[in-house]
Each structure stands twice: as C-alpha cells, then as structure tokens.
C-alpha cells in the first residue's frame, strides 16, 4: 500500500465516516469534496438567477450588479478556483479509475493538477479581479 493515501487498512482504526490516513491522497479527496459541495451550492443559486431572466429581469440585473461588485468578484474568483480544482482533480480520478496502473503515480498526478491550476488560475483570477482596482483607481 502506498503510504498515506490508501483506504483504511486496519479494522481497529475504522470509523463510521469515510476517511483516509493523511497525505496527498486525503488532501486531494477532501479538497475535491469541499469544492464539489461549494460548486453545487452555487449551481442552486445560478439556476434560480438564470430563471429570473424570464421571470423577473430586473431582479436578475440586480443580482448581476452584486456578482460584478468587488466582493462579488472575490467570490467569483473563489468559485472559479473551486470549479477548476474539482475539474482537474476529477480528471485525475477518472484517469486512475479507468487506467488503474496510473494510481502508482497519484502523487505526481496531483502535482500536475496544482501546476495547471496555478498556471491558468492566476492569470484568470487577475482578469476577474482587475476591474476592482481599475474602478477604484
């Protein structure tokens, strides 16, 4: 078993809720679950706000002003980070699920996830946040 990322091996340590034994595998899983729940919560809001385009366009435009305000842009950046991590790590999971031999490289795959995350995410965050200081300045 690979250190720090396998399923609980010892029955004495089994708990009633899912858990890993630490390390990259556990962090990758915890981030995946937290980001997934966060994106899911936004999806509920997002379907309702798109529905408002037909039902109450003024309310939609008001929400749009909140989304494009400085706090809204910070929240959108966090949303984008959650979505992007979940997407990249999700592909890591799918790759390992369908090509199990690659689980031997799960830690390297996780590092690739973070390299892509920051290489694309940092410029992306800059684009989303830029209007804050353009308006302020």
């Amino acid at each position: 078993m690979v250190r720090g990322s396998g399923p609980l091996a010892s029955p004495q340590k089994l708990r009633s809720y899912p858990s890993y034994r630490g390390g990259e595998g556990m962090a990758a899983w915890a981030f995946h679950r937290i980001s997934g729940i966060g994106v899911w919560l936004f999806i509920i809001l997002h379907v309702i706000d798109i529905w408002l385009i037909g039902a109450n366009p003024e309310a939609y435009d008001f929400l749009g002003q909140i989304y494009s305000s400085p706090p809204g842009r910070v929240a959108e950046t966090l949303l984008g980070a959650a979505l992007f991590y979940h997407a990249l790590n999700g592909m890591r999971i799918v790759v390992m699920d369908f090509w199990p031999a690659l689980t031997a490289y799960h830690r390297q795959l996780w590092r690739i996830v973070w390299i892509v995350f920051f290489a694309i995410g940092l410029p992306g965050a800059y684009i989303i946040l830029k209007p804050i200081w353009e308006v302020a300045g």
């Binding site: 003024e58 435009d61 984008g80 997407a87 992306g124």
Partner: peptide, 21 residues
C-alpha cells in the same frame, strides 16, 4: 462545457456586461 462556460462568462465577457437583455 462548465470550464468553457466559466471562461466565456468571466474571461471573454465580463459579468458587468451580461444583463438579462
């Protein structure tokens, strides 16, 4: 789909420009 959607709504266009109209 979701990543392209996020890129379109935040990088190509800006949320400030996307009114109901």
């Amino acid at each position: 789909l979701a990543l392209a959607h996020f890129a379109m709504t935040h990088f190509v266009f800006d949320p400030a420009d996307q009114s109901a109209e």
